[in-house]
Design a protein around this nucleic acid. Structure first.
Lengths: 244, 244
DNA sequence: AATCTAGTTGAACGTCCGTTGAATTTCAAC
DNA sequence: GTTGAAATTCAACGGACGTTCAACTAGATT
């Protein structure tokens, strides 16, 4: 899988540090933008290499196949994103060593890196998040690609939320994250639907306004799920995972 | 637009009441399933007509173009869905003429028709909702197709929520609906990601469990957005639309 | 029986698809 | 200046794409 083609062909450019490799990056940029606009199957390799102004064979040379190109686009910005998400989470955990961070702080650490890059990180990031939104809702790629790319970090966040909401059942915790993920991805898809629906009162690209509302919306949702039962059904007995 | 092709060609079958038109329905069924699985561009007309076991030319004959076929698939179940949503809403408004319906009741009237059909309405409905999820998050079709198909009914629901949350600002109301829409569509996309993430604790196809959590999650979210300001900023002054 | 039309068929249209192979260029290391 | 691998170019492969067309069938209307 990682070596690509079917007959000895392998993806190159592991040397040279992968830094400032102009052709590769140009192809990734064009693929990112076009995949986000029209979806994986809606874009041809010729569309991409044409937009990047490189030869059509170079996409296969550098990425093995069209699917390999999609995965490379998906992975390129994920490392930076996951890195900042974890850094923010660790900062929270380190700062409040005595007192666990609040739910709002945790959710903000999860969503703010997206907001910041989509609003101020350049058009590549905007395309990237729109692509993630499409993939997240796609039965074809959603389950596999999202899991592989993000779920390790997501597990860290869910663990932090678990501590912030003691006694919360696991199912409630995961479903609440699922709702957060849906709200988040639709937001960054920026389809413009909400602009029309609201008659211009809301603007898809006013991400700061959305984020300011997304965090309390989801925090309240988490609490609604985790509090309602924690008191009335099973008192504390959650497995044997100690009290704390 | 409604008559299709470029040269006098028009979509037929307005006669005969469009009832029990087997070929049309077979094509729509196959298109619904395949579009949901692989997206609009990921499926060819030959895939669809092959699965429906009809001649290739019949898709263009009945629906004008591939895009026309997508729109027909999208519209076919929308009428029934919008109808039941409105019926439930009207029943709520009629029943509690003295006291306005609660937020939870309104959200349930909006989401329960989806839950019920996806869980117990046959595989066609499941495919339909997965397709809606993909379209909703697609920059290419999302803004146009969702607006045209659903937003008239959505406006009715937002109006009902507006009465249930007096003093809520318009922007908060619409953004909260937007988050609800994102959570809802990702849920019905059933990509299986949450199954892996939760290690089997959550199952994508256990829609009754999800719905039981989606309603309180979103209701709490709505209240969190509408209450925080409703008291501290503008007291009651919402336009001049009378009091009651 | 003749007419008409919606429905269906099979074939073909020109175009684009993802991928590959062989030849050529680039450029750093020796 | 030679060598050798990486990068790039050009052309082509077989096949699939959406759409169209003329011919044909079936069933109702005259």
């Amino acid at each position: 899988m990682t070596t690509g083609g079917k007959r000895g062909r392998r993806t190159p450019a592991r040397r040279s540090g992968a830094r400032s490799h102009p052709t590769r990056e140009r192809i990734l940029d064009a693929a990112e933008r076009l995949f986000a606009q029209r979806g994986f199957h809606g874009v041809s390799i010729r569309d991409i290499t044409g937009a990047a102004d490189v030869d059509v064979a170079l996409a296969n040379y550098h990425f093995g196949s069209k699917q390999g190109l999609l995965e490379a686009v998906f992975a390129r910005r994920a490392e930076e994103l996951n890195g900042e998400r974890l850094a923010r989470l660790d900062a929270l955990l380190a700062a409040g060593r005595r007192k666990a961070p609040t739910l709002e702080e945790i959710i903000d650490a999860f969503t703010h890196p997206l907001l910041d890059r989509s609003a101020r990180g350049g058009p590549g990031w905007k395309s990237y998040f729109a692509l993630v939104a499409e993939v997240n809702n796609s039965p074809e790629f959603g389950g596999v690609l999202m899991t592989r790319t993000f779920d390790q970090v997501v597990q860290r966040f869910i663990e932090a939320i678990r501590r912030a909401l003691p006694g919360c059942e696991e199912r409630d915790l995961y479903w609440a994250y699922h709702f957060l993920s849906g709200a988040l991805t639709l937001t960054f898809a920026e389809t413009g639907r909400i602009d029309k629906l609201s008659g211009g009162v809301c603007r898809s690209n006013d991400l700061d306004s959305v984020h300011e509302r997304l965090v309390p919306f989801c925090a309240a949702g988490f609490r609604a799920l985790c509090v309602r039962k924690g008191r009335t059904r099973k008192p504390p007995a959650r497995r044997s995972k100690a009290a704390r």
